[in-house]
Structures are given as structure tokens and as C-alpha cells.
Write a protein that binds this DNA or RNA. Structure first.
Lengths: 216, 216, 216, 216
DNA sequence: AATGAATGAGTATTCATTCAT
DNA sequence: TATGAATGAATACTCATTCAT
């Protein structure tokens, strides 16, 4: 929600502003990100920032929005028709991973919304985002279960959390520790793990003694 | 590494200090945690903190140590003998989860060490911890593969990252969204996912069309 | 190296700042000089200082520079052509003395660079200044000796230190204890002492029994 | 003026205290010297210092006294009988220099009294000391002049300041820049400079054009 | 007599935000 | 519309001094 003033800026100036600001918020958690550093780097007046944006949070939210827009532009709408649930999951998160590879700054910026902050309005957004993302995953898995694609003993709620973590943090970590830039083999590994791990089309082994001795 | 002064404090005072300080660092990333807030909350003089600890980092490291000590005290050493790799993994992370349930403040504090910081000494520790933890997981999986417990197409490096994310972030998220406090069913779900997902004792399905169309 | 901001200040405000800051650093060694006192005296916000200067040292170095500039402006470049070494020495130091008389604050400020400090960058500068100043004096005397203007038994290195002290500390002290403001008679006294003390054009007396009994 | 408590201390403990405290005040100007550092180094309680001394100044003054006592003990009363004024001067300051060589800590401590401070009581003492020392030098030179040992054109007041600076700062600087430890040659140089510079037994040259063009 | 915990004002420095020009 | 100077509360940290035990 920048002011009109911001959009009236010459394109190159506006883009430079966006790029430098994004880099700052990508490099530091929201609370530690510094408007002072941004204007110092840009060589513009501090007041300008407040002519464009209401406050620090306003700027940050705009950048998050921008990150989403760029992601969409870079990846395009995913065509997931005709794919089973595992393929769809893999492709969705692979898209995010590709963004991280191609636009690390914007990807890092997006991840800032998963961190806690002292800014209450940000905390609220974070909670809501987490809840929506969880719901999405749950819905996807629930549909799969109803379509008979999941083993019967899979708890959709729990699996949603596990799969999300694996595909969000896990994929990213796996890719970061690799020297090569090839995403496909990594995504294939995750897909295989998921397929074996959840699919109904594979035989059920009897569980061993299991967690019954685990301290809870 | 607190000073002797700190250990000579009356027990209740010292414990209140530890509790309030832990809460501060659990609630905020290291850079944003505020000693000013701690002393304000405690109602003591600012100088007192520096009678006890050399500086902010010294206090933080002591609290991390304390978190480790409490974890050990709460859980005891894990007995993992005779268990297969999946059981072992599940129990290790379940232990961490149990700590999070019983001592959420201390668990959150521990997780702070996974976040980046502008304090160089802390960054060094974080990098080392991450590297050690990654290596541990890799070693575990590599041993399992050599013992024939993993499917042959599993890439140990990638799987290590995926499994770690699933069991660290994933388990935690799954538990947090539940209202009940029972850990066992959640851990069992993860165990099952892992077993089906990685174990060699289950048949290999042929992969469907796969990632060949995925944008990389 | 103040920021542009500082130079854009209204002249009177900037000059008042400079004067108050100079007075503070003139009155206290660098380590004890207090930015808090400066802003309290000026009645401005603490943050303002850091709009103008990067840090305490930056401010101090600017003031030292300013002192040099004012000295130059007040005295102008010295014309020492055609004078013998004693005249040249006397005039050089007399110039510093005149500055002290006319601008005691700025002179005191300059002398701060001769004091030790806990600021490493300042220590480095001090060491270098001392070394350069010693070398300058030595060179001057060495030239005089080569030109036959010095008695043959004069040790240039030792004489350099003695003469420097006499003309720096000594002249200043002599002038400070006088109520009148006339520099000339004082400088003439020093010149005479130097001339008799070092010049080759005066007869050599045989030294009395001398230092042979001195404890070393 | 330490308390009785201090003198009742076991000798070795008391001496260690004195030595460490002296080192601190020798290493830092009075304002910057830190009692915290002293007790940290000694490993004693902070309160102890205040059981021995009323405050920081009280401790410092005691140490200054002690420095005087040690100087006297190390050097003994100077026997200056039968010497002319130049010899007497040289020996007096040479004694101080010897102290600096043998006991650099105590000598540095003594010099602290020549530095300005924010402690008003210290400032008063400094002024008084300077005045007394100046008077002593003036008296010495005045007697010499009355005894016909000084050239007639020597201004006793000015010469007192010049000679003091040369023998205090100058001698010290000359000795410090030398690698060898021999004091005698350095003192001889100063003696010679003084003798030629001030003595009545040497012919008066006519002064050259002189300071008449010097800006005052 | 010694301890050492507590104090609180002091230090330099950073920062988001405001507002007159 | 842009500027950029001013603000003042925030940060971590130091210090001489006090006082109950």
C-alpha cells in the first residue's frame, strides 16, 4: 500500500528503491532491518521513505506483495491438472525452490514472514498465513484420502504438517548443501519419499513394537 | 560461564533471574532480545546483570547450556540399542518434542541457535552446530544404507535434509496444532511415513511420468 | 570528515557546535571528553551529533583538522628563508605560542594528540605524529651541524629532544605565568638561550668535573 | 591517608595491593583509572578498597605520597653543596630520570599529577604543585643571578620555565628514544647546553636582527 | 575486618519517525 | 514532492560507591 507518490516515481528510481529495500529485508529479520541503511545505500533522503510508505511495516508488506507478484510472474500459474496428489505437491514446492534459486533475495524476503517479530500486526499476519497454508495442505491431503490415494492409517492433519516441513525447509536445505544447481534430482527424491511413505498403492507392512515404549 | 557472584545468589533470586532471562531470549531473536527489558521485568539494577555475566552473549550462552542441562535432566540419556534406524530417528526427535511440550520456553530458547545473528561469535557457533547436526543425520542414514535398510535409490544427502526437516519443524508443527497433548500418535505417524518412504523392505513402484516436465 | 549534513547547517549553529565541542575536547583528554556534555551544553538532541559525525573519534579528528586550519589562517605560512637554525626554531614555536595566546581552546585541543588514549586509532596517530615531529627537529639540527653552526660536542639526537621540550612546553609555561601578553621578550629569551647553548660561534669553555659522580 | 585497617594488613598483601594500584594509575589518567580493574586484578572484594581508603582520590593521593617516599628511598637526599647552579639543576633532574629508569611505574604515577582532571580537588593540588615547583626553580636561578653566575640579560622567570621544561620533559624524551640505558651522556649534554646558554662566564654575542619581525 | 551484591547514573551509539522548508 | 535536520527513547555496557551480612 504505497502512496500514489511512489508510483509516480521514475521507473528506474522506483525499481532501484525496491531492489535495495528488498535486499535489506532479505538480509535481516524485520525487527533488525534498518531504514537508515536503506536510505544510506540509496543516497536518498530519509523523509522520502515516509512519503512513499506509512511506516516500516507498510514498506515491508508492500515488498512481500511484490515478492508474490514476482513469483507468479517468474513461474506462471502451475498447471496441476491430471496429476496425482504427490506430483502436485512436489511441483508446488519445486516452484518455490526454483524461485529461491533464481531470485534468492525475494525468496529470502518471503521467508521473513515465518519469523516472529515484536511488531504485533506482523505477528497477526504470520499466524494467519501459517493457518492458511496448513489448511491448504490439509485440504489437498483430505481430497487425496477421499480419492483412495492415501493409506488408511494416515492422519491427514499430522501428515500435512510433516509433508509441509519436508517440502519447505527440507527441500531448501537439501538444495543449499549441494554444489550443483540441478533441482530435479532433489525433487525426485522428495517425491519418491512421499509416494512410498503415504501412497495407498503400496503394501502395508506390520508395524514393529513401535512407540509404545516412548516416554511421553 | 557466569561469575561466581551469580552462583552465590539466593536460590530463588537466581532462579527467577534465569526464568525471566530465558523467557526474553525465547521470545525474541538474539539481536532483538533486550537486557533492558529483563532488568525492568525483574526490578533489578542494570549493573547487576553485568556482575553476573560478561556480556549479552555470555548470558545467552549460559542459558543455552542450561537448556541442554534441563533437557538431559528431563529426558535422560536415550537408549537406542537394538532399534532400527527409523525407530532411532523417531525417538531422538520425539525426545526434543517432549521437551518442547514440557518446557516450551527452554525449547524455544534452544531453537534460537538456528537463527542468524549479527553477533559474529554466535554466527560461528550456529554454522558449526548446523554442520555437525547435518553430518550426524548423514552418518546415521549412511549406516542404514550400508546395512541394507534403505532402498537403493535413496540419496543419503538429500534424504538427510528432508528427514531432518520433517522431524524437526514438521513434528513440532504437527504437535502445536493439536489441542491434545499426546505425542505418541504423532510420532507414530512420522515413523510410519519414514518407514514406508525409505525402507528397503517394501517393493519399489515404478515412478510415473515424473519430474521430466518440471521447470528447473 | 563530517557529513554533508553538518556543512549544510546554518552558519551560526554550526559554529556554535564547533566551539562547544572544541571546548569539551580542550578541557578533557579524549577518553574523558563526553558527547553527552556537549549536547547538554548545546541543548540539542544526542542523535544530532551522529547525523554530523560517524562517531566520537570522527568528531575529534575533524576538530583537530579545524585547529590546524585555524592555525594556518591565524598565522599564515612562515617565511623562514635566510634565517639561521636558531631563528627558524624560535619562529616556528613562537607561531604555535601565538596561536595559544589568541586561541587557547584550539591550542589546548591540538595538544590532546600528544596524550595517550585507549582508542587504538588515536594511539596510532599519536605515535606517528610524535615520530614525525622528532624527525623534523633532528633533521633541522643535523643540517645546522653540517653547516658548521653547532658546537662539535652537541649530540643531535639528544639536543633535538631538549630543544623541543624547551620550545614546546617551556615557552608555553613561560608565557602562561606572565600576566602581560607580550610574546616577543619571551621568545627572545629562548632564542638567546639556544644561541649561547648550541652555537658554534661562541668559545668552548672547558667542562668542570662534571657528571662523573652522578648516579646512573 | 589510608585507614588504620590498611596498615594492619599482612605486609605482602598490602604490598601487592600497592603495586597493582600503582600500576593502574600509572597506566591511565586519574579519570580513566578504574578501581574495578584493580580489584579484578587483585582478586579481592571491591568493598575492601573502601575499607582502606575513603575514595578513589584518597587512594591516588596515598600512592603519590608513596611515590615520593620511594623516590627518596631510592635516591637518598641529594648532596648539592659546593656545586654551581648548573650542576645542581642537572643533578636534581637526573635523579628524577634515574627514578624513571629504575621504577618506571612510580615515575609515571608521579607524572599523573601534571595532567588535568575532572576531580576538582585534584585540580587544586596540581595548580599548587606547579606553582611550588616554578617557585623553586625561580629561587634557584635568582640566587645564581645574584651570585653573578648568570648572564645579565637572562630573565629569571622566563628562564625558569624554559629550563624546567628542558630538564623535565626534554631529558625524559631524550632518554626514552635511546636504546641504551646510560643516563650520564644525556645529562652531560643538557648540562652543557645550560652552561653555554646561561652562564655569565661566556662572552655575549650581539643578537642578530631577532624577533623584531615576529608577529605577536 | 572483609565480603560482594546492588545500585543507578554514566558512556557511546542506533533508530524509526516527524516536520518545516 | 523531496529534502534532511531534529528528535528522543532505545541499545549494550562501565563505574565508583554503599551497605547488609
Amino acid at each position: 500500500m504505497p502512496s500514489e507518490t511512489f508510483f509516480n516515481l521514475p521507473t528506474d528510481k522506483r525499481e532501484r528503491f525496491v531492489q535495495v529495500a528488498a535486499a535489506e529485508f532479505a538480509a535481516h529479520p524485520y525487527d533488525s532491518a534498518s531504514i537508515t541503511r536503506i536510505v544510506r545505500e540509496l543516497g536518498i533522503a530519509k523523509g522520502s521513505v515516509y512519503q512513499y510508505f506509512a511506516d516500516k511495516l507498510d514498506l515491508f508488506l508492500f515488498l512481500l506483495d511484490e515478492a508474490g507478484r514476482r513469483k507468479l510472474a517468474a513461474i506462471g500459474p502451475l498447471s496441476l491438472d491430471g496429476l496425482d496428489v504427490f506430483e502436485r505437491l512436489a511441483r508446488m514446492y519445486a516452484a518455490g525452490l526454483a524461485l529461491y534459486r533464481d531470485e534468492p533475495v525475494w525468496a529470502a524476503l518471503s521467508l521473513r514472514l515465518t519469523e516472529p517479530s515484536r511488531e504485533p500486526r506482523l505477528e497477526a499476519m504470520r499466524a494467519e498465513l501459517a493457518s492458511r497454508s496448513r489448511d491448504g495442505m490439509r485440504t489437498l491431503l483430505a481430497e487425496a484420502r477421499d480419492a483412495g490415494q492415501l493409506r488408511h492409517d494416515v492422519d491427514v492433519d499430522v501428515a500435512a504438517a510433516l509433508v509441509h516441513a519436508m517440502l519447505a525447509e527440507g527441500l531448501l536445505a537439501a538444495w543449499r548443501q549441494r554444489e550443483d544447481a540441478a533441482l530435479e534430482p532433489i525433487v525426485d527424491q522428495a517425491l519418491s519419499l512421499l509416494r512410498h511413505g503415504l501412497s495407498a498403492s503400496y503394501p502395508q507392512p506390520e508395524l514393529p513394537s513401535g512407540m509404545s515404549q516412548t516416554r511421553t
